[in-house]
Simulated assay, not measured.
Amino acid sequence: MIRAVLALCLLLAWPAAAQDDPARAAAEAAARLEEAARLLDSAEGGRDRVEALTATLRAYEDGLAALRDGLRRAAIRARAIELDLAAREAEVSRLLGVLSTLSSAPAPLLLLHPSGPTGTARSGMILSDVTPALHAEAEALRSQLEELALLRLLQDEAAETLSGGLAGAQEARAALSEAIAERTDLPRRFSEDRIAMAALLASADTLAAFAEGLPVTVAAEGPGAAPPAPEPGSLPLPVEGTLLRGFDQPDAAGIRRPGWILAARPGALVTAPAAATIRYAGPLLDYGQVVIVEPGPDLLIVLAGLATVYGTPGEVVPAGTPLGLMGGAEPADVQQILTETTGPVAGTRSETLYVEVRNGQSAVDPAAWFASRP
């Protein structure tokens, strides 16, 4: 995977000013893959292993994103070259014909002119002026054809690279799930009253009602301390995504939700935006799999729409701890990548995560708590 991303950097090196960003992103992703592999090899304890696997999975996500972006750019560039060559077909044919004549005919014969020495001298002068321009045109054509060959080679070899990257990412997800299940070193603030939680799940008909009833699900206080409350406007996003619908904005059916809807990639890792206590993890109403964390007194962050959730109520997790994975499957075929829609939801970001922030008994705009608008 690392070699493939580095090869992608080299193949995307035309002209540097136009392709600098994707090449740099691919190089950084390759460096992160190498660093994550070193972290994974050196991990010993449960928490170290979770952190190393989290870094590994992030690196795979970055590398695959760079590969997808590079493949699309390569396809666009290849198509542009093909169209340019097709538009200049007659010109290219004439150039090849002239070059063929120049290369096959003896030089003295090219300079001879039927009108005699004067005409021969003039033809020599004209030929000396024209030849550099012909060579320049031939060099530009050669560069285009070489670039097109490299781009086609990239697309031909990308299937194996993509398959290996997807397999590596899936292996990292499975290992991460196993490491989190085996983790025993997290402090606990409380133990859950399962009977009270079951009753709350059966009776709550809204997310607000469920959030308000969470205090009654605490069976006993634990030794863990509550994490310090974060500063408003300081939190990173729980998933790398694009804002699809903002706070209290209606959807196509006119339904309003007091939170954000983020479009994310299939299988994307969802992490805790701050050190927090897990208050709930599991299915809830029509929200799918949900994680509710408490980063501070009377402050809840609801993350809904996941396919897999991690953690147990009562655990205190550090910032950046994996809380779950988005659903869906990444395209495993190069042609799918080249033809998929590049909008915020279709194609690369086909999954949606609902993010709600509750301060006290009210839902507030997440913009007040997160550092940047997605």
Score class of each variant (00 low, 15 high):
residue 292 I to Q: 02
residue 172 A to Q: 03
residue 201 L to N: 05
residue 157 E to R: 15
residue 212 E to C: 10
residue 367 A to Y: 00
residue 208 A to K: 13
residue 302 V to N: 08
residue 299 L to V: 09
residue 318 P to S: 14
residue 305 G to D: 13
residue 46 G to H: 09
residue 116 G to L: 02
residue 57 L to E: 09
residue 200 L to V: 01
residue 278 I to R: 02
residue 45 G to E: 10
residue 133 A to N: 12
residue 270 V to D: 02
residue 341 T to C: 14
residue 6 L to T: 13
residue 355 V to I: 13
residue 265 R to Y: 04
residue 154 L to T: 00
residue 217 T to Y: 05
residue 45 G to F: 07
residue 129 D to W: 14
residue 282 G to R: 01
residue 275 A to W: 03
residue 349 R to I: 04
residue 149 A to I: 12
residue 113 H to T: 07
residue 344 P to E: 10
residue 204 A to R: 09
residue 132 P to C: 03
residue 259 G to P: 00
residue 115 S to Y: 03
residue 314 G to H: 10
residue 206 T to E: 02
residue 162 L to E: 05
residue 339 T to L: 14
residue 251 D to I: 05
residue 217 T to M: 02
residue 55 A to Y: 00
residue 141 L to C: 07
residue 263 A to C: 07
residue 168 G to C: 01
residue 192 E to W: 05
residue 308 T to Y: 05
residue 59 A to C: 07
residue 96 L to G: 05
residue 371 A to W: 10
residue 93 S to I: 08
residue 272 A to N: 01
residue 247 F to P: 04
residue 139 E to R: 12
residue 279 R to L: 10
residue 118 T to W: 14
residue 82 E to W: 00
residue 340 E to Y: 05
residue 177 S to R: 13
residue 354 Y to R: 12
residue 335 Q to H: 14
residue 153 L to F: 10
residue 31 A to T: 13
residue 158 A to L: 06
residue 161 T to M: 12
residue 257 R to E: 13
residue 235 L to N: 08
residue 165 G to W: 03
residue 312 T to A: 14
residue 264 A to H: 00
residue 44 E to V: 15
residue 335 Q to W: 14
residue 116 G to R: 00
residue 135 H to L: 15
residue 158 A to M: 06
residue 90 A to G: 07
residue 72 R to S: 03
residue 89 E to D: 13
residue 80 A to P: 03
residue 226 A to M: 15
residue 194 R to Y: 06
residue 218 V to F: 01
residue 217 T to A: 04
residue 292 I to D: 04
residue 71 L to R: 02
residue 276 A to E: 01
residue 206 T to I: 06
